[in-house]
């Protein structure tokens, strides 16, 4: 039944014995069958056209005991399969699931399908902040191919979208054979995705004020950021949120700095003092040093460097979201005010 259903939806499969190896429990594989290993261990690919079909295929492959991977744009998965860093006997490719490529706007929220690419987001006028974050991902090639679902699936420590969505209190929409679910991003990241589920979309509030995303790292087109920071302002609810990526294993919210901002900003004008911008950065550094579990120090920067960079980026993003004044006289000051006027 699995084979029939899958074929109808467009399966590409290997020689009969490797397909069996992929979809049957290991114990059921006939003795003497040697799995094909050239080009990795992948022996079957399924190409559903709907979310329903995708879930059916995921569940059947999972029940058979095969190692399954969802394929979005492939910018993370395909090189990893090639290098042997990842192995998947069955690949469920989402390219043809058109319903995942939809993005839409409700009265207060934006919903972005898992198949939406960075290039699609980069020109989205309904969310200028998100669009700017998407524009600084990788290269044209990566932005044209990489998807929102892949960004959530990879969950990189300083993933651009992940950092932005963390600051945006985003929700993740998933579908599995048990139905659809909607959960806050931190819970999604903590619990992980069930092996028979896929991310269908993310949902976030419509922007309620200035949003700034900044990152620092090596050559952008070739390497994801080392440290990332998003600051989002909600003028209506008098709220400022800040997330920092690249310090912990996942982007983290800077709650003390957020509370400080709530009290410090003049919400009628969006003005803060330049001293407050510096203090905001200092609070982010303090919080960054306490993030657990911390990212293991690697060749791309010591922990101290990351803490410092987090503070600099946060202070800068904060200043760019607001009008910064110098105490006691008012008026734009130096670098902090760059871009601070509308």
């Amino acid at each position: 039944m699995f084979r029939r259903g899958s074929d109808r939806a467009g399966a590409v499969h290997g020689p009969a014995h490797t397909v069996l190896a992929a979809v049957l429990p290991p114990a059921a594989v006939p003795v003497g069958v040697v799995p094909v290993t050239a080009g990795g261990t992948t022996s079957a690919m399924f190409r559903p056209r709907t979310v329903g079909e995708a879930v059916e295929m995921l569940a059947a492959a999972h029940d058979s005991g095969a190692a399954v991977a969802l394929l979005g744009g492939g910018t993370d998965l395909v090189p990893a399969l090639r290098s042997g860093e990842r192995a998947a006997e069955v690949v469920v490719a989402l390219r043809r699931v058109l319903e995942l490529r939809v993005r839409g706007a409700g009265a207060d929220s934006l919903t972005i399908g898992a198949g939406v690419t960075y290039t699609d987001l980069a020109g989205w006028s309904l969310s200028p902040g998100l669009a700017r974050a998407a524009r600084v991902v990788g290269s044209v090639q990566i932005r044209n191919t990489g998807t929102v679902g892949g960004a959530l699936g990879s969950a990189r420590p300083a993933g651009d979208l992940l950092t932005f969505l963390t600051a945006a209190d985003a929700e993740v929409l998933t579908t599995s054979p048990r139905g659809s679910d909607r959960l806050p991003l931190p819970r999604f990241l903590a619990e992980g995705l069930a092996p028979d589920a896929l991310v269908t979309a993310v949902r976030l509030a419509r922007p309620g004020g200035p949003q700034v995303y900044l990152k620092i790292g090596e050559r952008q087109a070739a390497y994801p950021a080392v440290v990332s920071c998003a600051v989002l302002v909600d003028r209506v609810r008098h709220r400022l949120t800040c997330a920092v990526g690249g310090v912990g294993l996942l982007p983290a919210r800077m709650e003390a700095a957020e509370r400080y901002a709530r009290d410090e900003v003049d919400w009628s004008t969006g003005t803060v003092s330049s001293a407050a911008a510096r203090r905001f950065g200092d609070l982010v550094v303090e919080a960054a040093t306490r993030i657990t579990p911390a990212l293991p120090a690697g060749p791309r920067g010591s922990a101290e460097y990351r803490w410092h960079a987090a503070g600099v980026l946060a202070g800068r993003a904060f200043a760019r979201c607001l009008h910064v004044t110098a105490p006691p006289a008012s008026g734009p000051v130096g670098d902090f005010a760059a871009g601070g006027q509308p």
Binding site: V12, G74, R82, V91, T119, A222
Partner: peptide, 24 residues
């Protein structure tokens, strides 16, 4: 996906062909 030597247009969009599975 880092060097662009394998660049192609995929449905009219620039892509690195080493990040795409051929069967897909």
């Amino acid at each position: 996906g880092r060097c662009g030597a394998c660049s192609v247009l995929l449905d009219g969009r620039l892509a690195a062909s080493c990040t795409v599975l051929a069967a897909d």
